[in-house]
Design a binder for these strands. Structure first.
Length: 556
DNA sequence: AGCCACACTTAGCAGCTGATAA
DNA sequence: TTATCAGCTGCTAAGTGTGGCT
């Protein structure tokens, strides 16, 4: 029964995702608690008692006062506009200038609350934890077919100020409180229908087993739909599609260049032909509505100003320099030499200012899926990421290394992928300090080591002169101490290297979403590294299928 | 072909927590 | 026992891709 069917997906016929679904509905955040009387708001120096609705929104802003957002003009303007909508007539005619608003006391109260929470007694913390656990127990699980499953996000998003990333035109707008009347419930007809909070009703209860969500509502900033869903589980199928691409790369995709030139923008040809894994892993780049989101682009939406063509750069011929903001407004900067000379002729097109040269992802995907079933633009990222990990692991790890060194190599391979996929992070606020701390520890350990060494020498000397069995034992002990010290020192030095190299790189995203876990599991088996060293508990759960099925000889 | 609605995946960050060192 | 900090989890924004409609 451990055979091939065990990790099968798509249990049901066309599009049916479940046969039975039962849950308790989403959890709603607590109602707003009015400010105590001693916490006041001032306008133009004078105390103003705000209405409940206006006060709540004022608190949202006051809570963010330490954040960069509140210094940004767009944020402030959007906030102020939406805040005024929540005010009463009188408030609105009085409060006309955000700069004259004094949120000082509200801000101070908020900070005191955070502080108090931090300083809670053990008992209080435990009580809070238990209360939270009760909520999880009641709302955090559902019955999906015959299994009890953990729900990924069972809480309705609380109201607040919209925190769009980058230069988001809607940052600071009021994200409204969601009521049960806004929420659609999805579950089995024959299940216990979730009960709405007292005095409320659901917007709708439906029974659609072709979708996986349990509840949904429409959010007021972009008008998009938000869902309550299970945690996405990684799919074997997705990696198999990417893996198939490996054999397709030469005989299918690259041969299509000529055809691509015909009816798709030339730039795809360039990108998808020059896809030596060490090169590009751009996102597809769907069109976006202008003014609704931050101006970010991907492969298909790149504009002329994002690309510079160099006929000669850093010793390579025909190099494309990319500089643009991608998803989450993360900057992508890269200089990529073209590997297929046939593409050179395509470059002049990049200088054409017309957007029409840049085809759409739907066109691209249509073409790609005709080349290979299941092939879409994002499969290239999965393929590139996984093949790069495999190559890097092969290149970097030695069987004779110790575990710490092997793990450094693994992280370096993972890092190569993260760089390829442009997974960046802001350097942690405490980064410099923690590096200094680690360095200090290393120095201390070094001293300890030299001390241990001289003690060993001394012990040896004494053992020689006395020759008794007792000092010999001492020599062994000292030897062990030196060895232990050396190991710890090495471990710390490796850790320092790893951390320094990882300053601005986020490994988690590629690990979770792009790297075929079978590559990592096979590597662990080959290198005799316990799988817990590279996957934590939740990652092991997510990749249980790979851990279970993968042999040491797996090749992506 | 272009659009939009919808469903689902991928993403960085903030705050929490538990391991570790002092 | 307490302070610290790295790693983890939860959160929710921001992508991708499909399919139906005009």
């Amino acid at each position: 029964f451990l055979g091939s069917g065990r990790w099968e997906e798509e249990k049901y016929e066309d599009g049916v995702k479940w046969k039975f679904l039962e849950h308790n509905g989403p959890y709603f955040p607590p109602e707003y608690q009015p400010l105590p009387d001693n916490v006041r708001f001032y306008y133009d120096g004078k105390e103003v008692k705000l209405s409940l609705a206006a006060e709540e929104v004022a608190l949202f802003f006051a809570q963010m006062l330490d954040h960069d957002y509140t210094t940004k003009n767009v944020f402030r303007e959007n906030f102020f506009k939406d805040w005024r909508k929540e005010m009463t007539h009188e408030e609105r005619s009085l409060i006309k200038d955000l700069d004259k608003c004094d949120f000082g006391e509200i801000h101070a109260m908020h900070k005191a609350k955070v502080e108090a929470r931090k300083n809670m007694s053990k008992e209080e913390k435990l009580a809070l934890k238990e209360a939270n656990q009760k909520i999880v127990d009641e709302f955090g699980f559902c019955m999906l077919d015959h299994h009890k499953e953990r729900i990924g996000n069972f809480k309705i998003e609380p109201p607040g100020l919209f925190r769009g990333r980058g230069e988001h035109p809607k940052q600071g707008m009021l994200k409204k409180r969601i009521q049960p009347e806004d929420v659609i419930i999805n579950c089995s007809k024959e299940s216990r229908i979730p009960v709405p909070p007292a005095g409320h009703h659901w917007k709708e209860v439906r029974h659609d087993n072709t979708v996986t969500w349990l509840a949904s509502w429409t959010e007021n900033i972009q008008g998009s739909i938000k869902y309550i869903m299970l945690n996405a589980n990684s799919k074997l199928k997705k990696y198999e599609v990417a893996r198939k691409l490996k054999s397709c790369v030469d005989n299918t995709v690259t041969k299509q260049v000529g055809e691509l030139q015909g009816h798709l923008f030339h730039f795809f040809a360039l990108i998808f032909v020059s896809f030596d894994p060490k090169q590009l892993a751009l996102r597809a780049g769907n069109e976006k509505e202008e003014g609704e989101t931050a101006d970010t682009v991907g492969c298909c939406s790149l504009r002329v100003e994002h690309i510079t063509l160099h006929e000669q750069l850093d010793g390579s011929e025909c190099v494309v320099e990319f500089d643009f903001l991608g998803k989450d407004s993360i900057r992508y900067y890269n200089k990529v030499p073209v590997i297929k000379k046939g593409c050179v002729g395509l470059f002049p097109a990049c200088h054409c200012p017309s957007r029409s040269y840049f085809s759409q992802t739907s066109m691209l995907n249509k073409h790609l899926s005709s080349l290979m079933p299941g092939l879409t633009a994002k499969v290239f990222r999965t393929y590139n990421a996984s093949i790069t990990l495999q190559q890097q692991l092969k290149e970097l790890t030695n069987k004779s290394d110790n575990v710490a060194e092997k793990l450094l190599s693994y992280n370096r391979a993972n890092r190569a992928v993260a760089i390829l996929c442009n997974h960046q992070r802001a350097p942690p606020k405490t980064f410099e300090q923690s590096m200094v701390n680690l360095q200090t520890k290393i120095e201390a350990r070094k001293e300890q080591l030299s001390l241990a060494k001289s003690e060993l020498k001394q012990a040896k000397k004494e053992a020689k002169s006395k020759g008794s069995s007792d000092p010999k034992l001492l020599v062994e002990r000292k030897k062990a101490a030196v060895k232990r010290c050396e190991e710890q020192l090495l471990k710390m030095e490796v850790q320092a290297t790893d951390r320094e190299e990882n300053k601005q790189i986020a490994l988690g995203t590629s690990k979770l979403n792009y790297l075929d876990p079978r590559i990592s599991v096979a590597w662990c088996k080959n290198m005799e590294v316990p799988v817990e060293k590279i996957y934590n508990k939740s990652q092991r759960d997510k990749f249980a299928w790979a851990i279970d099925m993968t042999e040491a000889d797996f090749e992506f």
